[in-house]
């Protein structure tokens, strides 16, 4: 198992965003995390990367417990993530954004940087090389020098994925990477996600659109009101009565809607 979440609970004040959630992620799979709005999907990413504090339960990543570690330490251990509402460094170029992502895989400190030592220059060359490779992978070749905030929306999403990949993660957390995209853009992103998986990166994907998720994901975990209500292959989930109720509501309640 690459990742094990055991009995993870997270409350904000009186609201329980996650209640006793447990599931595992296998190496090399694409796991879909689905559920209605407010089900706790993004909170789960925040808990996983320590971007919120106060969660209880165990999180074991590559055999080590990571809960309570600071965010940058978790990233360093091999978790990459994107955000639901894209968080690029707006005034940096596309290339610089990805170069920042190489932070954990490089080490030059203040003096090496100022003295431009041979090791530092070699490292910068490697960062640049890897950065251009990643930009090409996500389809941004030729856009390296563009300022991030000036890129079209779809490119910004790709750039964020490239930045998350720059730290060479074992696990990539994608928070609604196709939100607001049209059908062909969505297909391209899904193609990219499979390509990333084939490079050996395990992916957890938050997605709203059920029909799309069915095509990309190997397995699904369904959250509703902070609880896991189902887990299984797309086929199993599609026929799960609990999931159908969560998404469509019961017939008796239909009158209110």
């Amino acid at each position: 198992m690459l990742l094990d979440m055991r009995n993870v609970t997270m409350s904000f004040g009186g609201v329980t965003a996650l209640r006793d959630v447990s599931f595992s992620v296998r190496e090399g799979e694409i796991l879909g995390l689905i559920g209605p709005n407010g089900a706790g999907k993004t909170t789960l990413f925040h808990v996983l990367t320590s971007m919120v504090s106060g969660a209880s339960g165990d999180i074991v990543f590559r055999g080590e417990r990571i809960e309570g570690l600071s965010t940058h330490r978790i990233i360093r251990r091999g978790v990459g993530r994107t955000f639901q509402n894209i968080r690029l460094f707006p005034r940096m170029t596309a290339r610089e954004n990805v170069m920042v992502g190489r932070h954990t895989r490089s080490r030059a400190g203040v003096w090496q940087s100022v003295l431009r030592t041979r090791a530092q220059r070699a490292e910068e060359d490697r960062i640049r090389e890897k950065t251009d490779e990643l930009l090409a992978l996500v389809g941004l070749a030729g856009k390296e020098g563009s300022v991030a905030s000036a890129l079209p929306y779809g490119y910004q999403r790709r750039l964020e994925i490239a930045r998350a990949l720059a730290c060479e993660p074992k696990l990539l957390l994608l928070d609604e990477p196709v939100a607001g995209m049209n059908e062909s853009e969505t297909r391209e992103i899904h193609h990219l996600i499979r390509k990333v998986r084939d490079l050996g990166v395990t992916v957890i994907l938050i997605e709203h659109d059920m029909s799309l998720v069915m095509q990309v994901c190997d397995r699904l975990v369904v959250l509703n009101f902070g609880e896991k209500i189902a887990e299984g292959t797309p086929e199993e989930i599609q026929n799960d009565p609990g999931v159908i109720v969560a998404y469509l509501g019961r017939e008796e309640e239909g009158d209110d809607a």
Binding site: V100, A108, S113
Partner: peptide
């Protein structure tokens, strides 16, 4: 690398942590 980290922190601290 250090200067990029500075700029990242300035522009978006949370995204910098995530990087």
């Amino acid at each position: 690398r250090v200067g990029r980290a500075y700029a990242a922190v300035r522009m978006d601290e949370r995204a910098a942590e995530a990087a």
